[in-house]
Design a protein around this nucleic acid. Structure first.
Lengths: 259, 259
DNA sequence: CGGGTGTTTGAATGGCGTCAAAGATTGTGG
DNA sequence: CCACAATCTTTGACGCCATTCAAACACCCG
């Protein structure tokens, strides 16, 4: 199976595309992103990308590689809380978030750039970069939503549904950032990591994945996942009909609450 | 077993005490809270407190009764994501949160007051109510942290650990708001709800609870929980040593990110 | 008193974890 | 290029934790 997978490094262009899909961006905002240059830093697979001890860490953008937020328990067990892909923000939230107090570890080699200055520019000129502020906050809104989805998986789905739903989520996220080609995407997660994310043992992950393979729903070899039957997976995963959450088209920044 | 349990309606005094424990409040801020009067609205047990469809819902404060955030799946299964107690805020976050897109249902009869105006006052006078803004945001920070704790429970703990940890969390939260007397607190959760929160069947919840009873760790009758051995529960629940998260003593509101 | 709801208990089934060991794959150094 | 180690995947056997089904038992309320 020879598959050409996009290896293009994540550029600001992709972030622009991603944000533009969430809300309107002015030319001025696009050019701010477009001209944003920053030298990137690479974290090797397995190393810590973002420590939770240092509250002062500067917000970052992942431009290549996968990372995860994970919590390690006293008995040595790991629970992956969230998977981070290229185009995802780290610690770039408007206000303090608990999720940012969790350690972030690189799954594959991860390249990040510092976007503290970018976010600062947005914050200091709220009128000028209104659309940007909006779409950026939607980005973290979506991560929180994924967290809740995952919580539901862990709490009330059997292994097969968990895996089907999880793979589908990764598939859709990869597609959004252009990392899917011919229904396939690179997934640098070992089955052990899948187990750590889904609360399952390696052995059982393997068995269920095999079932999905023989069922003709997916193909999985050498770290490459091919989604053969997305609709079938969605049915197995018991996804609600309106899976695509509608972005609140009117996110009112001036009424109610502090917002 | 006759136990006197505090039935005092949650007043602004209690919110003040709760916030003051999270950070310094000026006299000016205390008086703002103290003088805040609002007629309360009651939601009967089982009814919806806060719909997620209406994005415009005004933020509220629970002053009595228990509620929960829950998600209902296609197969009819329920997953309780979070338990809300008196003194907890609903929808009062600085910016849009995914958790606020989840339905909130009253567990017992719930009284709430509208605090949109209060939050607005805080927001419109950031300098004046700096400490208040800080502590209020800590409140939602802690809820998010509880969410992550719960996720870890669901993902990587067996039934007994889940139940022990969950009861302990409720115990500590009740104690903070003064709802614990002689180690006991009223818990209006049926065992079925406990199961829905913890991803367990009613039957198994019952069996594990009985084990905790015969083990002399808790007592549970008629909706009243008595924690007999908090340390033992903590050990069972495999809680990390530094269970009491230290409030970030220096939450810098002027550097990094948008914050 | 009766019905509804919640709790408790038993027995049987099965999903999933653990243990163990054999392939398959990747990477490294000679 | 091959050999070797290390990591990951795969498979079988076994046992336990937890679910399901079923039915009795307690409790509350009108």
């Amino acid at each position: 199976m020879q598959i050409e997978l996009p290896k293009a490094p994540f550029s600001m262009e992709l972030l622009i595309r991603r944000l533009a899909a969430l809300g309107p961006l002015s030319d001025h905002e696009r050019s701010l992103l477009h001209n944003w240059q920053q030298h990137s830093k690479t974290h090797m697979a397995g190393s810590e990308v973002f420590g939770f001890k240092d509250q002062r860490q500067r917000p970052k953008l992942i431009i290549s590689g996968w990372a995860c937020r994970e919590r390690i328990m006293a008995n040595g067990r790991r629970q992956l809380l969230s998977i981070l892909l290229p185009g995802d923000l780290i610690g770039g939230c408007v206000n303090q978030r608990a999720i940012d107090l969790v350690e972030i570890v690189a799954i594959s080699n991860v390249r990040v750039i510092d976007i503290a200055g970018l976010l600062r520019a947005v914050k200091d000129n709220p009128d000028e970069y209104n659309g940007l502020a909006h779409t950026l906050s939607l980005l973290s809104l979506y991560e929180e939503r994924r967290l809740l989805d995952h919580m539901v998986r862990l709490g009330s789905q059997p292994a097969m549904q968990r895996i089907a739903g999880f793979l589908l989520e990764l598939f859709q996220r990869c597609r959004v950032i252009g990392y899917v080609s011919a229904g396939s995407f690179v997934m640098p997660l070992t089955q052990e990591m899948l187990g750590n994310a889904l609360g399952l043992s390696v052995v059982h992950v393997n068995r269920v994945v095999r079932q999905l393979k023989v069922g003709g729903l997916i193909d999985l070899h050498g770290g490459i996942v091919k989604i053969l039957d997305a609709a079938g997976l969605a049915e197995i995963a018991d996804l609600p009909s309106n899976e695509t959450i509608s972005a609140p088209d009117k996110c009112d920044w001036s009424t109610g609450a502090l917002s």
